[in-house]
């Protein structure tokens, strides 16, 4: 298992065993100045504060949470675009932190990402087909004509017609561009695909095209995916398990149906109740969160959610709740859910 890095084994979906990705006690603190301008005190902004999770082969894990809760930071740490303050990330059983540059470059072939902005991810002066073959050529994987054939095949398989191959990014629609970004990520036959808000720049009618495509490719290539999104409608559609984040911490993690049918954390409950449903006259019971999100450099004591929680008890401001399992396997960090208060 150890010497796998170089091989391009792709379809590992049912080959369970050790998880493909394992994250333990991940922290990322940023040093930032508090409001007082140039002379303001420097503070720690705890963007990711003790996050652990693992993803098995072939699984899709969703990460949801408020803006600023640390989702993109986690994505950047996983892809080693940024280094953690502390904590361990293991990919295929190997720690990312100990890798030599050569090993890291190899590893990068197996971890690809798709970010929100499809234009930013593409080189405006490069034809579509060249954008897609470029990673193959960089990694010196095949001859030029082989690369071209492979890219063309992939592009066709995601419904891009041959006449688009020789266009430039600005000559494509948003949905087409996002498909090119996907093709660029998938041409390396990665084992892990990290998607950070891959459809939020897209229109609804186009978004469904991209979501369907992702689902199809996942089946075909046995992809393992981390799917970051603030749109829980999409997350429900595409993920098998979800982590819900609030201010740098995972507050709940569960299988998708469990989470949507019996959310256990008050934040998850409020979040689910706030999502609009395309059906008039439902008259749903809404849970409105109190006040505003707290400042990330001046975090509330105890449970970070207590300032906005509709079920908070006095004790919640004192002790930090641990992320622990309920009887049904759902992980929750809430005193109330565990009957501790």
């Amino acid at each position: 298992m150890n010497k796998q890095e170089g091989s391009s084994v792709v379809s590992l979906r049912n080959q369970n065993g050790l998880p493909l990705l394992e994250v333990t006690d991940l922290h990322k603190y940023f040093r930032v100045r508090s409001s007082g301008g140039l002379f303001g005190k420097k503070n720690n902004l705890k963007a990711v504060d003790g996050v652990s999770f693992s993803v098995s082969r072939g699984e899709t894990l969703g990460i949801v949470g408020e803006s600023g809760s640390g989702k993109s930071t986690i994505a950047r740490l996983l892809l080693k675009i940024d280094n953690p303050t502390s904590g361990v990330i293991k990919f295929n059983g190997r720690k990312l932190s100990g890798l030599l540059p050569v090993e890291l470059r190899k590893l990068r072939q197996h971890m690809q990402y798709v970010f929100q902005d499809p234009l930013g991810a593409l080189d405006p002066r490069m034809k579509i087909i060249d954008q897609v073959t470029e990673p193959l050529i960089i990694h010196n994987i095949a001859s030029k004509s082989e690369c071209h054939d492979k890219a063309a095949e992939l592009l066709r398989s995601i419904d891009l017609k041959d006449h688009t191959f020789y266009r430039y990014p600005h000559e494509l629609s948003g949905g087409q561009r996002q498909r090119v970004v996907l093709a660029r990520a998938l041409i390396m036959e990665p084992q892990l695909l990290v998607c950070d808000e891959p459809t939020s720049a897209l229109d609804v009618s186009i978004q469904a095209q991209v979501i369907n495509l992702l689902a199809r490719l996942r089946e075909r290539m046995g992809l393992t995916m981390i799917f970051i999104s603030h749109d829980l409608n999409i997350v429900r559609h595409i993920c098998e398990r979800v982590s819900v984040m609030y201010l740098g911490k995972v507050v709940e993690q569960a299988q998708i149906d469990l989470l949507f049918n019996s959310p256990a954390h008050p934040y998850t409950q409020a979040l689910l109740s706030a999502i609009p449903i395309p059906e008039p006259g439902l008259n749903r019971q809404r849970i409105f969160l109190k006040s505003d999100p707290p400042s990330p450099i001046d975090l509330p004591s105890g449970c970070r959610f207590h300032t906005r929680c509709h079920r908070a008890k006095p004790g919640c401001a004192e002790r930090i709740p641990e992320l622990k399992s309920l009887k049904n396997g759902q992980l929750v960090a809430c005193h109330l859910a565990h009957g501790e208060i």
Binding site: S205, I211, R236, F260, P278
Partner: peptide, 12 residues
């Protein structure tokens, strides 16, 4: 084409 939280849809 809308995915929705209140039900499971096979294919959008």
């Amino acid at each position: 084409s809308l995915p929705r939280i209140d039900r499971q849809i096979d294919m959008l």
